[in-house]
Design a protein around this nucleic acid. Sequence first.
DNA 1: TGAGTTCGTCAATCTGATTGACGAACTCAG
DNA 2: CTGAGTTCGTCAATCAGATTGACGAACTCA
Lengths: 145, 145
Amino acid sequence: MREPDLARLLLEAHRSLADEWVASMEERGYPGVRSGHAVIALTIDRRTGTRLTDLAERARMTKQGMMLLVDDLESRGFVRRVADPEDARAKIVRLTTRGRTYVAESRRVLQAVEGRARRGLGDRRYEQVRDALEWLAGEEEDEEE
Amino acid sequence: MREPDLARLLLEAHRSLADEWVASMEERGYPGVRSGHAVIALTIDRRTGTRLTDLAERARMTKQGMMLLVDDLESRGFVRRVADPEDARAKIVRLTTRGRTYVAESRRVLQAVEGRARRGLGDRRYEQVRDALEWLAGEEEDEEE
DNA sequence: TGAGTTCGTCAATCTGATTGACGAACTCAG
DNA sequence: CTGAGTTCGTCAATCAGATTGACGAACTCA
């Protein structure tokens, strides 16, 4: 067996892609991009907005963690928190016009980065890697019992 | 193309493996294990010790970051900093007896975790994934020019 | 109506990693 | 031998990401 550093490799590969995304976004005129923004760009409902709790759930992180991300996005003018007419406790995180542009650009760049990876690896290997990663990410996490 | 969330998958797979390692170490009676300890276990010279700067370089992190890890390991009695006879500026991070046991156990568990992944994926796919990850981790990082 | 739950928030904490500064020690050209 | 520049480990400050705990306000439903 080679050095048992699969975990490290996974982390480095992650960083490589995340850094590439951030750098590419900054080149396109979006300073202050954070890697966490990507999850929101991928999961927020672009027309109606999404509740914070739902965003957190989709991103598999805590509400508190998501709140910090939303705070950041809000301070940059990309989202607004509006009251949920159906539940006075809840607030809906809704994209502003600038936010819609930002999200569209984010997704484009995300696709571009991933497209490069796909071309580099070849379609078949790319798919195999994805399957393997899904398996790795999924197994073991429900082993408490 | 599927959702362009390869980066997220990589991170989740990393966390899954890292958590498994930590949990397994704790089960074996090593509380307070940190994921960062693994790099040291894999790269430190187990007989003669290694200078902090070299450890940092091997782990591809800053000296300061490595220092925090070494501080932690030292406070747990797994390493000692001893003067380098060849360079009065330098200190050698050397394993204590307990440290040697800890490192041996770390490596065993690391192998076990990785072995499970390998069996789950099958040898061929495992190797393909490793190659793909190396490529992903390596490309692009020298794109500043 | 009241017990229990959910929503967003605040506060504190932790881990990982960074940059900047700095004294002490080393290297080497002149 | 000297002094300029570099390297080693450290301290300090900061930042990003994420967590747990607590809490008021609002909702649900027996």
